[in-house]
């Protein structure tokens, strides 16, 4: 009896210890974030102004601005989503509904398995690898040059696996009973996919797209490889124009020796953070909106 009581006391102590340990972990994580944010705000906030947002780059820290990279990032992101979303969703639909065929054979099944495995792995490939591929393929071979188009295609390739994997998740989360309901009314497979399954999976698909696009927004390595310029004084007008993006501009400023440019870099980071947070905010809003609707 005593033995059991002692053991129970020990388990209770373990409970308490785990509680504090996990609390400590989150406090450390949040504290680092808070310090980072405080540092950024204190150095960058004084530099943030309307003219900072609407001016072109300059050799003088006081006159430099973020207009060109802001517009560049916007174009690149919109084009990236425009390429990656349709191709990603179509690939996921193919893998979920068509790849194995109506009468699955072992060969087709293992081929599909192989494809899925490779797409999962692609999601983990470092972004610089995509950058080098983009440089070789889009910039040189397709002769797109150091353009917005080349950058967007490169980033689209980078986010594609993430969109495919998440779209497949979203499709599989749609209850089969909905598809059966539509089939029982005489719907064709294509009708079931487009009128029932994709609308029901839309929330998950959009959330995944926005989150992966926000990852692309923060990337600098692949864009440096594809050739974003660091000193752009005119706004891009066509997708074939040269460009720069926020992370690349920030990277450049942060590497300057003058202290004033360090402050400018902080201000740039604040702008980038604000964009990222609003994108993630939209994703969260979308998710909750569709979750409310989709309580089957």
């Amino acid at each position: 009896m005593n033995d059991i009581a002692a053991r129970r006391r020990r388990r209770r102590r373990m409970d308490a210890a785990s509680h504090w340990l996990f609390l400590l972990a989150i406090v450390v994580a949040l504290a680092v974030l808070a310090i980072l944010l405080w540092d950024l705000l204190s150095t960058g906030l004084p530099r943030l102004s309307w003219s900072f947002l609407t001016s072109h780059a300059s050799r003088f820290a006081d006159r430099t601005g973020i207009l060109a990279p802001l517009v560049g990032s916007f174009y690149v992101i919109v084009l990236t989503a425009a390429f990656a979303l349709p191709v990603g969703v179509a690939t996921a639909v193919f893998l979920e509904f068509y790849a194995e065929g109506d009468r699955p054979s072992p060969l087709r099944q293992s081929l599909t398995q192989f494809l899925k495995l490779n797409i999962d792995n692609l999601a983990g490939v470092p972004s610089i690898v995509y950058g080098l591929f983009g440089l070789a393929f889009f910039v040189r071979w397709m002769q797109l040059g150091r353009s917005i188009l080349a950058a967007a295609l490169t980033l689209a390739l980078m986010v594609l696996p993430v969109i495919i994997v998440n779209t497949r998740e979203a499709i599989r989360a749609v209850p089969p009973s909905l598809a059966h309901g539509a089939y029982a009314l005489g719907a064709s497979k294509t009708q079931v996919i487009f009128t029932v399954i994709l609308p029901a999976a839309l929330g998950g698909i959009l959330t995944a797209t926005i989150l992966s696009v926000s990852r692309a927004l923060g990337e600098s390595a692949p864009l440096l490889a594809v050739g974003a310029w660091v000193y752009v004084t005119s706004l891009p007008r066509t997708p074939l124009d040269s460009f720069t993006v926020l992370p690349v501009q920030i990277y450049y400023w942060a590497g300057m020796p003058q202290k004033a440019f360090q402050e400018v870099a902080s201000a740039g980071i604040l702008v980038l953070l604000a964009l990222l947070l609003s994108l993630n905010g939209i994703a969260i809003w979308l998710r909750s909106k569709y979750q409310k609707k989709a309580e089957w």
Binding site: S177, A184, A200, A294
Partner: peptide, 12 residues
């Protein structure tokens, strides 16, 4: 036509 065990209206 068919009616299923668990009501399965579309989320529409």
């Amino acid at each position: 036509g068919m009616i299923f065990q668990k009501p399965n209206p579309f989320p529409k």
